[in-house]
């Protein structure tokens, strides 16, 4: 029924290309992401000069730094999304399956948490516990599971109304077994789609923290901190801003496209919105 989207294929291909480059370039490049080279400060992008994307204020190769930034961003995106998916799926499946009072309590909690201003909280967390890299994952993962919990709960409710679940319940199958064997497998497609859509949000979140100086430690770079560095130098050397910004935008764009396509294919309840 639904149109296949060539856009999603292009997005997937582009994403694969970026991932491959992020893995290979730092390994193959003669340059290091961290060591300053004082003789080569602000050499602009050029093929002949050996620095395809130029160098930054400390003479470090921007290509290698951007690729490291992609690594960090994608890693944070995937790891934190996994955390949020695990929490969200457990929470939502339990609420939807248990129903009644427990459902009420769990979902009311989600409602309350929706009103919590998250970015300030993560900033407080970051400041309070120091800029620990692991902390970034946990903080972001811990605050971005709400949507998934809601979607999973709704879907679980729908699944539990199916007759085979009632039959299994009547046969006395244990709750945990039920959730594991009947509910979760039916959720996989939906969760995969929404997890893909969660990744760009998480990447943006990490980039925002790094932009504010609360993310990764220098000399390590994430795309967010590279954009922040670039913004400081943009008057004289705009490429330092534009190149990492372009990579960040491309990754987000591709993940959004891919997630949209997955959701349209896997979530029957979702009406196609926006541009198809």
């Amino acid at each position: 029924m639904r149109r296949t989207r060539p856009g999603a294929l292009v997005a997937a291909a582009l994403l694969a290309l970026i991932v491959a480059a992020a893995l290979l370039v730092p390994a193959l490049s003669p340059y290091d992401y961290a060591t300053p080279v004082w003789t080569k400060i602000f050499s602009g992008p050029s093929v002949s000069g050996g620095h395809l994307f130029g160098t930054d204020s400390l003479g470090r190769d921007l290509l290698v730094r951007v690729m490291w930034g992609c690594r960090i961003s994608l890693l944070v995106g995937i790891a934190a999304s996994l955390i949020s998916v695990v929490i969200g799926v457990c929470w939502g499946a339990l609420a939807g399956y248990a129903g009644g009072r427990l459902d009420g309590v769990l979902m009311r909690t989600v409602d309350v948490l929706y009103a919590v201003p998250f970015i300030p909280f993560v900033i407080v967390l970051e400041v309070a516990f120091g800029r620990n890299f692991l902390m970034v994952f946990i903080a972001i993962g811990a605050v971005s599971w709400l949507d998934i919990a809601r979607i999973v709960r709704g879907q679980t409710l729908a699944i539990c109304e199916q007759e085979y679940i009632e039959a299994a319940r009547a046969l006395g199958v244990r709750t945990t077994t039920m959730i594991r064997r009947h509910v979760l497998p039916n959720l996989i497609g939906l969760v995969a789609a929404y997890a893909t859509l969660a990744i760009p949000g998480v990447i943006l979140f990490e980039a925002l923290l790094s932009f504010l100086g609360l993310g990764v430690h220098p000399p390590l770079a994430s795309l967010g901190s590279l954009v922040a560095e670039g913004a400081n130098e943009m008057q004289a050397n705009p490429y330092l801003l534009i190149i990492p910004a372009a990579f960040l935008a491309t990754i987000i764009l591709c993940l959004n496209r891919l997630g949209d396509a997955l959701r349209d294919a896997l979530d029957p309840r979702h009406e196609e919105d926006g541009h198809g």
Binding site: A207, L208, V227, L241, A245
Partner: peptide, 9 residues
């Protein structure tokens, strides 16, 4: 897809 901290600069 383009965050505020990119468009602003």
């Amino acid at each position: 897809s383009i965050p505020v901290f990119v468009t602003a600069p």
